Every structure is written in C-alpha cells, then in structure tokens.
Computed example of a mutant assay.
Amino acid sequence: MIPVFAESADTAPIYVSVELSKRSWLVASLSPGTAKVSLSTLPAGDGEALCRHLRKLEDRAGTKSAAPVAIRLCFEIGYDGFWLARLLRARNIDTYVLDPASFLVSRRGKRAKTDRIDAEAMIGILKAYLAGDHSVCRIVTVPTPEEEDARRLMRERGDLIRERTKIIARIRALLALHGIAHVQALKGGDWATQLDNMRTGDGRALPPNLRQQITRCFERLALLNTQVKQIETARAEALSAENSSFPCPDKAARLEQLRGIGANGATMLVSEVFCRQFTSRRHLASFLGLAPSPYSSGSVDRDQGISKAGNRGARCLMVELAWGWLRYQPSSELTLWYRERFKGKGKRAAKVGVVALARKLLIALWRFVETGLVPHGAELRVA
C-alpha cells in the first residue's frame, strides 16, 4: 500500500529526486521559495550519506522558512530495488517509487536524456502528482521484505528451469552433429554408461573431446536437477509451516484443488498475483499485460493485441496453464469456448486463442481464490 502523508497548509515541502546508477547517485532538490533545482552527487549505495544530505536540506530550508519543512522524495524503480525506499520510510521520509515506463515524454524530434534532465523532470512529476494529477505517473507499491522474499523462491526455480532447458538443448545439439538422435537420463540416471555405449551415425564411439564436453554438461544438469528438487522441498515446507511468511498459503492450497494446476504453478500465481488486491477484472488483466491495446485514430481502427506491460513471468505462466487447462479440464466451459471459436482454424489462431483463454482463466481463478466460485464445468481433484 502507498503511504499517504498528510499535507498541511502551513508545511513547506522540499521536493527531492534521486537518479540512481551503479557508480553514483545524483540528488536534485527544490527548496521552498526557490525556482532553481540544486544538484548534488553522492556515492552509489550509500543510504546513510543520502539521509545526512536530506537532513542538511531540512536544516538549511528551515532557517529560511517560517513554516516547518518536510521532504517529499522520489526515485525510479530499477536496479537498486526497494531497499532504499524502506530505509527512507523508516527514517520518516516521505518516499515515492515511480514507474519510469509511465512517464509522459516529448515526441518532438530527438529527446535529450541525461541524469540531470531526468532528475529535474522527476521533481516536476512529483510536484504534479502530489498536487492531485495522478495521470503524470504511476506509483509502485513497495512490498514488505516477507512478500519480496516469498517471490524469490519460485523465481529462482524459473531461472533454474531455463538453465536446464538450455543445457538439454546443448546436449541434444552436440549429439545430433554426429547422427545421434536419442538421449536418455536427462532427468537423472546412469548417463555415464549411456555415453560409453553410444555410437555415432557412422558406427564410431564418441570422440574424446566431445565425450568430455557432454560429460560436463551432464554434471551441470545433475546439479540443476538437485537444486530444483531442493527448491520444491522448500516450497512445500514454506506452505505447510504454521509460522510461514509466505503470503496467503490458503489461496495456494485452494488453487491446487483444480485439476491442471500443480503445486508450483499455484504457488507462483499466489506469490506474484493473488497476494495483491484487485478492484476489478480489468485491473487484474492489466497487471499481467493481458489487457487489449486498441488503436483508433480517425478512420484507422485496429487491435494491437495484448499490452504485455505487466508481470512477464506470471503472464507466461498463465499461457502455460491455459494449455494445461485444455488437456486436464476438457469439459469445462472455458475449454468448450476455446474449441468452438479457435479449433481447426490453424496454428496462429490456436496461439491467439490460448492467450485469450489465459485471460479468461486468470479471471476465473481470481474469483475462485477470492470467493470459492468454481469455474463452470471444472473438475476438482479427488481428496
């Protein structure tokens, strides 16, 4: 939730923006009664130095102003994450984290971009937002450390799965160069014996250097398989523990009751999406980037597809769950709608249709975890 700080009529605000980078931080400030923005450079990652600088700004402005002063600070979300916002809010500094993709920029020729220009522009954006114009930018909700840590588990699993897929593809490609089309023990097993018995397409044993390279690939693959299993064990323990910090474990357990949705998918959906509060189905779809993007200007009226402006990992997961829903929920109303509208119309229509199904399925699952309303025709797992 975005904190709301009461703005009294006798309070003089000091608007501050911080342009973050890996080498240094550029701090821009606009004190009461001045029209020129002051700039200062601080070492990157030094939150205490920033706090000391802010206190100096308060003391300096307090001596010139009869009214009490208060800092209103903002910065763009990016590489540094949310730790700085938590630090500043713990020091009672009004802090706003801005979504840079929501800024309105000039389309007149080439746009000049420097840290100084960006820092000064953020001050103008913050002033407009605090004055009541919420169309100038979007404020990012800062998650609690527990919420952020709960997402880390399934995000790491996704990274490991992608690494495992690359290694498997590499092993298959190396063997295909020598006429070997089939390989086993990719998910575990005696792969060393398999390599000893392999013969190339012209009947030879594997060349020594190729054998060593594939051996190293299998060793990395075995390590990844072990780590994936460890994460899945930690996920099960996190959901079953009484004092678990995982948000809304009851929603994850409820999602697992539906056929076609496994434990990993349910956990990721809850940690990334359903732990939040949404006001409407349109709000939910736009959060994942599954909302349509129309283009209508004059006589031109066309659809640009989905916006893809939301949570990419959760959006990809919903598309995977949509394919699984067609297989494991064949008699559900959503599956029947998909087959009636997209079946037999080609591969492109099938891919477009499964994205539309993913949006409908997302809304149905949201209603299921919030109200217990089972999607029409869906089957629950037998206890």
Results as ranks from 00 to 15, higher is better:
364 A>I: 02
139 I>K: 07
294 P>M: 01
279 T>E: 15
204 R>G: 10
138 R>D: 14
256 E>W: 11
50 L>I: 09
30 L>P: 03
70 A>P: 03
339 R>H: 14
174 L>C: 01
189 G>P: 04
106 S>G: 13
210 L>P: 03
59 D>L: 02
50 L>Y: 00
199 R>C: 00
249 P>D: 10
208 P>R: 13
124 G>A: 03
75 F>P: 06
247 P>L: 02
178 H>E: 13
162 R>G: 04
122 M>I: 01
225 N>G: 01
235 R>W: 09
126 L>N: 06
355 V>E: 05
167 I>F: 00
107 R>V: 12
120 E>V: 06
3 P>Q: 00
324 G>Q: 10
7 E>L: 09
196 D>Q: 04
275 C>I: 12
238 A>L: 13
283 H>E: 12
22 K>I: 00
167 I>S: 00
369 V>M: 03
335 T>P: 06
57 L>D: 07
72 R>G: 04
298 G>D: 05
228 V>T: 07
361 L>F: 04
37 V>P: 06
333 E>N: 12
216 R>A: 06
293 S>M: 14
219 E>H: 01
357 L>D: 11
270 V>W: 11
367 R>S: 14
1 M>V: 10
346 G>I: 09
139 I>Q: 08
374 V>E: 09
379 E>A: 15
100 P>L: 00
292 P>T: 05
120 E>N: 06
65 S>T: 14
17 S>C: 06
283 H>S: 12
304 Q>K: 13
55 R>N: 12
212 Q>C: 11
324 G>D: 11
324 G>E: 09
40 S>D: 06
7 E>V: 06
350 A>G: 06
100 P>W: 04
78 G>K: 09
270 V>Y: 08
43 P>W: 08
76 E>F: 03
146 E>A: 14
4 V>D: 14
243 N>C: 08
287 F>M: 05
269 L>F: 11
120 E>K: 14
245 S>M: 09
326 L>N: 05
150 A>R: 05
108 R>W: 12
353 G>T: 08
321 L>A: 07
68 P>N: 02
28 A>S: 14
138 R>W: 00
300 V>I: 08
366 W>F: 12
147 E>M: 10
97 V>E: 06
198 M>N: 00
69 V>S: 05
77 I>V: 12
163 E>V: 01
219 E>M: 01
151 R>W: 04
104 L>R: 07
228 V>F: 02
319 V>C: 02
150 A>V: 15
74 C>V: 10
360 K>S: 15
358 A>F: 08
77 I>N: 15
309 A>D: 09
251 K>N: 01
82 F>N: 05
136 V>K: 03
178 H>Y: 14
98 L>V: 15
178 H>M: 04
96 Y>P: 03
314 A>R: 02
151 R>M: 11
221 L>H: 01
146 E>K: 14
21 S>L: 00
70 A>Y: 14
206 L>H: 00
370 E>A: 05
109 G>N: 13
26 L>E: 07
37 V>D: 12
369 V>P: 12
193 T>C: 04
375 P>R: 08
140 V>Y: 06
336 L>R: 15
126 L>A: 04
111 R>I: 07
111 R>V: 12
159 D>F: 09
285 A>H: 11
54 L>M: 06
209 N>P: 03
241 A>I: 02
312 R>A: 08
263 A>Y: 08
289 G>M: 02
222 A>D: 12
